[in-house]
Write a protein that binds this DNA or RNA. Structure first.
Lengths: 96, 96
DNA sequence: TTTACACATAGGAATGTATCTATATATTAT
DNA sequence: ATAATATATAGATACATTCCTATGTGTAAA
């Protein structure tokens, strides 16, 4: 899959979205569960989830009334590594 | 040095700034030389350079009338790797 | 010591983004 | 069928970002 790097980095340039990603680090959560960790209203959370989804950072599955979101770690590593490799010699990559 | 990840990702979320970074991949350039590769006016280029500088992505040195910019690859690898490690198990990091 | 050049800064217009409230849609339970 | 719940979408407002033109600042040459 060819990820859109600009879309990816725009998506992770928002602290609320990064916080959502942290919540999803090692478990699926539905929208209501995610909302409980924020002061924002549910439509704002849905908006952020949509941005993350369009950047392929999260995937979702509907189960009953709830929609569960989970992190796609392949996207994260692929985008971060791919970007670095544009600018830094491969042999230097692990160092910092 | 502790990089500001949000500032870093905002900075690289603009295609023109990424293009500047590409131009600086393995050589220093001054502002006029950078301008030649864009349709934007010089003040816009200066603005983008300032954003990159504030994110520690580029450094600059004044020599005579010219100001030369160069890429800080430590910042790039450190931010990209640091971000990944927030979300992905270390042993999976090289894979994607 | 003016003039020319390289770059930065200021201010404004157009566009994009985040958030809210209100409402639509889909699913389940009564 | 109707109501309740979970989520998404629409539209409005506030704020941020990008780009422009005009101008300021520092350095070198005439």
């Amino acid at each position: 899959m060819a990820y859109d790097l600009n879309k990816f980095f725009k998506a992770i340039s928002d602290p609320n979205r990064v916080k959502i990603m942290e919540l999803l680090k090692d478990k699926e959560l539905n929208v209501s569960e995610i909302c409980q960790h924020f002061d924002m209203q549910q439509p704002s959370v849905s908006h952020h989830l949509n941005v993350l989804k369009n950047a392929d950072i999260v995937a979702h599955s509907k189960r009953g009334k709830e929609v569960y979101y989970r992190l796609d770690s392949i996207c994260i590593t692929s985008c971060c590594n791919g970007f670095q490799e544009q600018f830094v010699e491969i042999e230097k990559l692990g160092k910092a």
